[in-house]
């Protein structure tokens, strides 16, 4: 019996990458598996995928999925600018950026903000463990105030919350999740890819080596004990029919640009994901209560993405030749006459 194929006829193995070189038990490896599952189930054509990253443990992971796709592991904190440029060169590419908390919230904070501001069509996954793994355990800017380092040092600074920052800037897709919660992460990744614009998913992804101890708020046990999902997320791709058989009033259904749907089933208090102020309140209230609020926090499907704002054509700029790009001889002669 051959392997099950997705709707473009590829097996799950077509979405695998090189073997991971991260620590056994690293949250990032789980996210890699969620990514493979999401891309396989969505039926993404590997040649259209561009895997982008900066520097750090997280930024190594694009090598570990969809080996046949192009990937670009750039410089620290600068994934957004590379992604922006690549998207302009070829807006048919599906941009998938993987970053970390150091890469995003410290060295790359500026580029993170400006990518959101432009609404570059890109899925931006933050593998957030609150620590610098490759350099052996320093705090990152997402570490919570009072969080304790492995050797006992206490973090004395306020955390930067990538989701709160993204919301402030009017990011068109903001979600938070936990690497151990595949049921939530996978549909969120799918929705982020289907969304046209910058889609931020801050995924708490524990570092088993440097930040998985008591006193850390990014450990497996802390996150498991404190995760508060605001809604069950399911994703219905454009090539499947929508079947909704929930009680009226218990779900919210948002249609994305490509005709797919994200369906949110209410768990506790109803959260309207199109209400930015409500999203801010949910984050703030969660923080005050000591919870990690997860789920789709905010979504705006009406905003133009950057390539649309720039008014570039759907066909890739990279494919244009001199016939289209050079002014004619007459136009050139006109320019020369204006210099006289």
């Amino acid at each position: 019996m051959s392997a099950t194929l997705n709707h473009i006829g590829l097996p799950r193995d077509a979405y695998k990458g090189a073997a991971t070189t991260l620590c056994a038990g690293c949250g990032h490896n789980s996210i890699t598996n969620h990514m493979i599952k999401a891309l396989y189930e969505l039926g993404i054509e590997p040649h259209r995928l561009a895997k982008m990253s900066g520097i750090g443990c997280s930024s190594k992971t694009p090598a570990y999925f969809v080996e046949s796709a192009h990937g670009f592991n750039g410089v620290h904190g600068r994934m957004p600018s590379l992604t922006t440029g690549a998207q302009l060169a070829n807006r048919q590419l599906i941009m998938l950026g993987v970053s970390g908390d150091g890469d995003t919230a410290s060295i790359g904070l500026g580029q993170f903000l400006h990518m959101i501001r432009r609404n570059v069509d890109c899925t931006y996954i933050i593998e957030d463990n609150g620590t610098y793994g490759l350099t052996k355990g320093q705090f990152s800017a997402t570490a919570d105030l009072g969080s304790v380092q492995k050797k006992g040092a206490v973090n004395t600074f306020q955390p930067i919350d990538p989701c709160a920052v993204a919301l402030t800037l009017g990011c068109s897709f903001v979600a938070r999740s936990f690497s151990g919660d595949g049921k939530q992460v996978v549909p969120l990744i799918k929705a982020a890819i289907a969304h046209r614009g910058t889609a931020i998913i801050d995924i708490i992804s524990p570092c088993v080596t440097f930040n998985d101890h008591d006193g850390s708020t990014k450990s497996y046990s802390w996150v498991k004990d404190h995760e508060e999902s605001i809604a069950d997320v399911s994703f219905i791709p454009f090539f499947e029919e929508v079947h909704v058989d929930y009680e009226p009033g218990t779900i919210r259904d948002v249609e994305l640009h490509d005709g797919s749907h994200i369906v949110l089933k209410k768990l506790g208090e109803d959260h309207d994901p199109t209400d930015r102020r409500a999203a801010m309140r949910v984050i703030e209230e969660g923080r005050a209560a000591g919870h990690l609020v997860t789920g789709l926090l905010y979504l705006d499907t009406t905003m133009d993405d950057f390539a649309t704002t720039e008014q570039i054509p759907q066909r890739p700029l990279k494919d244009l030749g001199e016939g289209e790009l050079r002014p004619t001889r007459d136009q050139f002669a006109q320019v020369m006459s204006e210099f006289a």
Partner: peptide, 24 residues
Amino acid sequence: LISIVQAEDELAAVGMAIGAGWAG
């Protein structure tokens, strides 16, 4: 048939140009 982006700084400016050059 062109995109001219005023970037947030020169790091982003050259980063965008390199990203675009990489993509062809």
